[in-house]
Simulated assay, not measured.
Amino acid sequence: MNEIRRQILRGLAASPALALSLNPGQLFAQAAAELKISHQFPGGTLTEGDFRDRLCRKFSAELAKRSNGALKGTVYPGSSLMKTNAQFSSMRKGALDMSLVPLSYAGGEVPETNLGLMPGIVTSYEKAVAWKKAEVGKALANILADKGVFVVSWIWQAGGVASRTKPIVEPEDAKGLKVRGGSREMDMVLKAAGSAVLTLPSNEIYAAMQTGALDAAMTSSTSLISFRLEEVAKALTTGRGKTYWFMFEPLLISRAVFERLPKAQQDLVMTIGAEMEQFALDAAKADDQQVVSVYQKAGGKAYDLSDATVKKWQAIARETAWKDFAGKNESCARMLKLAEQAL
């Protein structure tokens, strides 16, 4: 028995209460650290299912592999760990380790995050990817850090529309329909187009459309597939090629949790997170194409957008959502200017 072990045992003998509070494994070996990763999307495997779930699983597997088991991630899909809308707030408090979540869901707490689903502000994957190194992306990352959350992976997805009745292609098509926009800013555009809006997370769209409470929903191509919306909606407006809105749906980590990790593990989290971005980009583009075949196979029809149509939606957004966002506070006004510079 080495001297360090003798000293530990002598100390425990002198403090029976401490000895009883520890199990034998804690005396001589530190347990592997675990990061709990929550998201709202359907669960799958490393190779099958919603790419956002697969990304979390790939991220977790790489963590365990490269840390030799010292750091691992456990994925909780389908809001099984906590409710969807509680995730961002919980990360800020350190009560949740990580989440892959649409950033606009945090708009009630941090108004600047609504820029993550601002209609008309991002119109291509190329522009979306450029945000990470652009001034707008740096500013957004700094705001999130100040609020207690770090961006691990920058993930963007094109948006489409599923409708139970007529397709929503032109702004006038939305008139009189009950539509889920996905963000306060998108709701403003829809209202200007004559829609009634319904606010709910994407994992609740199916039930709302099934009951008739909702006529149409705007969400990512991946969600249009994963939540099986082709079963309740037969008209699809795709996000392939051209669209007037993109969704920022990053993998995030609680700052409090991150800062408790050793420096080497912090570096590992960020390195692997950055590596996941190419996988996310390729998967999002693939889903933009796949969603068309999914809906057509189910008997639905798919519609694409023209440049002229995109500009119509963008014009409405400028006069409604953009003005409202900029008027919230100086920080939002500054963020919008930076975003416009990246157009």
Rank of each mutant, 00 (worst) to 15 (best):
D97G: 02
R255E: 14
I205A: 09
T320P: 04
G137C: 11
G108T: 06
A280V: 06
I155N: 09
I155K: 00
K58W: 05
K138L: 10
A256T: 14
L144S: 06
A17F: 08
V197I: 14
A31F: 05
G159Q: 14
H39P: 02
M1W: 01
L71M: 11
A29P: 01
G241I: 03
G78W: 02
D97A: 14
S89E: 15
A264P: 04
L144N: 07
A256H: 12
V161C: 13
R334K: 15
T320R: 02
V122Q: 02
G239L: 08
Y206V: 06
R228E: 13
A196F: 10
L35P: 05
R164D: 03
E204T: 13
L251Q: 00
E34Y: 00
T45H: 04
N68V: 10
F41P: 02
E62M: 07
E3L: 12
D267I: 08
L336G: 05
L100V: 06
W131G: 07
E259V: 05
R57N: 07
K285W: 01
A235T: 08
V129S: 12
E34H: 02
P262V: 10
L81Y: 14
L46G: 07
A17D: 11
L18T: 14
V122G: 00
A308P: 00
M82Y: 00
L198Y: 05
Y206Q: 04
A256W: 10
D97F: 06
N329H: 11
S80I: 09
L115C: 04
V129Y: 12
L115W: 00
L12V: 01
T238K: 01
R180N: 15
Q210V: 02
R5P: 06
N2C: 07
S183P: 12
A139Q: 10
L18G: 03
Y105L: 14
D267E: 15
L46E: 04
K138P: 03
E34D: 10
L96G: 05
G78T: 12
K138A: 06
M276L: 03
E230L: 07
P111G: 04
K323A: 13
T222R: 10
E62D: 12
E319K: 13
L63T: 01
W131K: 06
A208L: 01
S183N: 13
G116I: 04
K132F: 07
Q7D: 08
S226V: 04
L9S: 11
G159R: 13
W245S: 09
L103W: 11
R240D: 11
T222G: 10
M1E: 04
S104L: 02
R52C: 00
K132E: 15
K58M: 10
N142I: 13
E249L: 09
R164T: 12
A174H: 04
L343D: 14
E259D: 15
E231S: 03
A128I: 12
K301H: 05
K166M: 07
A235S: 15
A162Q: 02
G137T: 14
V269D: 07
V75W: 03
T113C: 11
K166I: 07
N114M: 08
